[in-house]
Nucleic acid binder design. Structure first.
Lengths: 324, 324
DNA sequence: GCCAATGCGGAACGGTTCTTTCCGCGATCG
DNA sequence: CGATCGCGGAAAGAACCGTTCCGCATTGGC
């Protein structure tokens, strides 16, 4: 039964793409009767994959987490993401899992279509670098929760810390996650306000029980969510900007400063770039990693931060603080 | 045909674990005749997976890279590595692939056994952060090439840049990759020297044509490769060591100082750790990222580096250097 | 050049299994 | 209560499977 095997694989794939499927939907996709779908589910269970089925009007099939990892059926983009992430981890940018990452990478690399391999190489070269002075990244757990809710059209309740600091509970129908520059935003329909809203993911704290499913409504801006976010969230603007002149050749600086910032040469031995930051002290810290002399212009906050840091370093040596 | 489907899946899994298999080996593992294996290969091909078979005495079956990504069959460790890597990438520590990583993560997360999910969480908390003051990570491409050769017992020829700087071509039978602290080492049998050798991966430049397969020989040190590397490579010894007392609670420091270094509390508001470094200046730079006051003990090099840095920071503000 | 190891594929056969069709039951939600 | 789901038994014909047997083609080492 080649048919059967292929169908089982496709079934696994479908169950990974979306969480809940009704038997009828699956039967339709697979071009078999629902009875066959039921048989297939039984087969999957016999193979060890825990398929949960819930009866009732909101019921359906769902692939649960089981005792072992089922075959992962990735599309191109996902495979590329996995490859790039693993390469970064194996190379030492994520400590502690190098060996495991290397092993997984070998496995994936062997079967990665060459066109994807090229994409991986390109991305790896262009894109790897770790985060600069921007704050810590988004919480991956929160991100996953939200992404899952979006994918499965499940209502989401969460605590939201507003810009001012006040907390509020939001009930939403989550639609899209949008990543701009350095932040994640959630585009969702706010059930209390009865309107579209964007939420900064780093301020979201999901509440545990997954909500019931909802039927999607048309997106704002005709579906151009990115624009909607750009318009409404003010997007990725830094609180502080600075101009840093480095007394070293541009290429050397570029090599040691792996960040998505444009570095402009100012002659053979000088160059300039304009980093942004929410935290001047953190930025000052990263600038010390440059290993070159530099000068800061037009940023009193950063200048102050540098003085603070210098004082701290001198204190660390056990010397008295430098006179102001 | 539950049997058949299960066998095909297992076949795919086997073909991912190792590259080359003879029909007899597979038949043995799957407990069927070789004829059935042949039939299964035909089935796999019909399903779109490019199985290459080479006749002859060194022949066998191999799963090639095809047009699309085959189902990935990961073991526990590999799944954890993938999850952790993806979380790091999605969180923003690897820029440019956040969306794709998030999507892949959702898929994996849904089916990840809970015991693995716990491991992922633990690793994520303890381990994610970017590299410390060590140099740039190993090249993932080189790493993959070597790891593949090890796995498949294929001879490996490469240019090796010795410590002094001279280059030489090596012909080896590669056995193991060992990761210590901050470097990757290859343990291999050097065919020219006719003895075991360890090579630093960052000095290896593989030559393209994959060598013929070889039959493994018993490893040195009775198989304790890690010890062999530690003994022979001088391993992860730092050129300088320092003692740093931080004027902040241990937990806070541990959170902001993501390195494989033991932090010992010295009371509620003080703790100490002993980092090593090859480059005091770089280490000094990373210490500034701590964001806490600290004191350095027993390390004239680091003290000097801190003074140098402080002076540089003050110069950067446009002020005259602090008096000594 | 020869030989051993390896993959290839046709044919035939007995046994198994799959898919479908039909149908009544049970659970869940509004 | 009713609509919407999933569940699973039975039956029947068709399709598939795994095995056994065989001779052939290709490859690399001795």
């Amino acid at each position: 039964m080649l048919e059967t095997s292929a169908r089982l694989l496709k079934l696994l794939s479908l169950l990974q793409v979306r969480r809940d499927w009704t038997g009828a939907e699956l039967a339709d996709r697979l071009e078999v009767t629902t009875r066959t779908v039921r048989n297939d589910m039984e087969r999957l269970r016999a193979l060890g994959y825990p398929v949960r089925a819930t009866p009732g009007v909101a019921g359906g099939y769902r692939l649960d987490a089981g005792a072992h990892v089922p075959p992962l059926l990735l599309d191109d983009e996902e495979a590329v993401a996995v490859a790039v992430s693993l390469r970064t981890a194996a190379g030492g940018s994520v400590t502690g899992i190098e060996e495991m990452a290397a092993r997984a990478l070998v496995k994936l690399h062997q079967v990665l279509p060459s066109r994807l391999r090229r994409r991986v190489d390109a991305l790896q070269a262009a894109v790897v670098p770790a985060p600069p002075w921007a704050g810590p990244g988004a919480d991956a757990g929160v991100l996953t929760t939200i992404a899952t809710a979006c994918r499965d059209h499940e209502r989401l309740r969460f605590d939201y810390r507003a810009h001012g600091g006040g907390e509020s509970v939001r009930s939403t129908e989550p639609y899209r996650l949008v990543h701009t520059g350095r932040r994640w935003y959630l585009v969702a329909w706010d059930l209390d306000r009865d309107d579209w809203r964007t939420f900064r993911v780093d301020r979201v704290r999901p509440r545990t029980p997954a909500g019931p499913r909802f039927t999607p409504r048309p997106l704002p801006e005709g579906g151009d969510v990115a624009r909607y976010v750009a318009r409404n969230a003010g997007a990725a603007t830094w609180r502080y900007r600075a101009r840093v002149v480095v007394h070293a050749p541009a290429e050397r600086v570029a090599r040691r400063l792996p960040m998505p910032v444009e570095i402009r040469p100012l002659g053979p031995d000088r160059c300039v770039f304009e980093p942004g930051s929410d935290d001047p002290l953190a930025l000052a810290g990263y600038l010390t990693l440059l290993g070159e002399d530099f000068t800061v212009e037009d940023s009193p906050e950063l200048t102050a931060a540098l003085r603070t840091l210098a004082a701290r370093l001198l204190r660390a040596t056990g010397e008295p603080p430098a006179p102001r």
